[in-house]
């Protein structure tokens, strides 16, 4: 006996038994980087404020400030091929200047490195290899700066903690870059990504006596 209901039941069970398709860790990280970059202006719009009359000069200053802040917020989501991108970098530089203490600056450099990596991927996908290479160069610079900040952290224990975090971040980034490398066919793009991976994996604090060779080979994956 093989009724329609039986057949449908077997088909339904077969569907339920299919292995789940899930993203790999690098995809999750890349996705969060892109989502959080787009959320940089805040997930919820700020509530509207009641307008109050001011003198002309005050109003002009306020309008200018709103324009500047608005540009900064809008630029937070921009990519290197956007007209607002220079404002984003300017804003990042300003924030770095206002960030005090080696651990906080270390964190911010790592965050910027993650953002540059996401931008590099977006530019590769947009066939803008020139901008992708520039983003990768900035990425490497932020890693180097983070390493320098780790070296300046207070106690040796603090330094070791930050250096470990840096190495962990680099390993994660390397997985992302390997994934990106596997997606491109342009030999110049492949070479640029490989070079960035090699240099990133050799990032260590200037005076560190740790080995410069990472735990795994940089060319172990595509």
């Amino acid at each position: 006996m093989n009724t329609e209901m039986d057949r449908f039941q077997r088909l339904a069970e077969r569907l339920q038994g299919l292995p789940a398709i899930t993203p790999d860790a690098a995809t999750r990280i890349r996705a969060w980087n892109l989502v959080s970059a787009r959320l940089a202006g805040g997930p919820v719009a700020a509530p509207a404020r009641r307008w109050r009359p001011f003198r002309l000069a005050t109003a002009l200053v306020a309008a200018l400030a709103v324009l500047l802040v608005g540009s900064a917020v809008a630029s937070a989501q921009s990519l290197p091929n956007s007209a607002l991108y220079p404002i984003k970098r300017l804003d990042e530089g300003l924030r770095m200047t206002l960030t005090l203490g080696a651990p906080a600056r270390f964190d911010y450099h790592l965050e910027l490195a993650r953002i540059r990596l996401a931008e590099a991927q977006a530019m590769v996908n947009a066939d803008r290899l020139d901008l992708a290479e520039a983003a990768l160069e900035s990425y490497e610079a932020d890693l180097a700066d983070a390493a320098a900040e780790a070296e300046q952290a207070g106690s040796p224990a603090d330094q070791a903690l930050l250096e470990n975090r840096l190495q962990e971040a680099i390993q994660v980034h390397d997985a992302q870059l390997a994934n990106l490398q596997g997606q491109v066919t342009n030999p110049a793009a492949v070479a640029a990504i490989q070079a960035a991976r090699d240099r990133a994996l050799n990032t260590t604090p200037p005076a560190s006596d740790k080995p410069k060779t990472p735990a795994h080979s940089p060319k172990s994956s595509p």
Binding site: A20, I21, T22, P23, T27, R28, A31, W32
Partner: peptide, 8 residues
């Protein structure tokens, strides 16, 4: 919590 599910 939701990214994997949405991706799937």
């Amino acid at each position: 919590r939701y990214f994997d599910r949405i991706y799937n």
